[in-house]
Amino acid sequence: MNLSNDDVQDILSLLDSLPYSELTLETSRFTLQLRRSAEGGWTQETQGLSQRVLAGPVAPATPPAPPSATPPAPPSGAPPSRGGPAAAAAPVPRAASDAGPDAQDIVAPLLGTFYRAPQPGAPPFVDIGGSVEADTVVAIIETMKLMNPVYAGTTGTVTEICLDDGQFAEQGAVLMRVSARTG
């Protein structure tokens, strides 16, 4: 049983009749700090302390089907926040392309997961040798559940795809290189 909003209300109605302006309740499962605010109301700060009870790992009946290969998992228990292990391993912005004066880089507009295809099993938006226009969608970057299309932003031929499908990309990381169309 966990602390509910109704429980907090009940504690507050008790506190309201007492002269105290702060209460800290600590159990093995949670801490609750209630403080009188400047406006005369109350604030709450809670911390769940229970350890989660982990059920055994489950082998899915069929292999998972994310967009192509499953990206490598960061170490268990290390949420991939900015600056965490996953971010440290993620590609960082590279120097401008050295593929020639006509080469253009397509970079990640924001940090997130790089996908080359619109959905699992679908053909990629573009391959090496494919030609692109400025408004061609070449990839998706998924950030916080939002699927953000990546536009080529330039006209030419894709010469290099710098990340694997499903890999994590920092903002500004080079995703693809495009050489300007000649003739």
Binding site: L54, G56, V58, T70, A73
Partner: peptide, 9 residues
């Protein structure tokens, strides 16, 4: 209880 579904993505 909690059960692990897979990697973060």
């Amino acid at each position: 209880r909690t059960i692990c579904l897979g990697p973060p993505p």
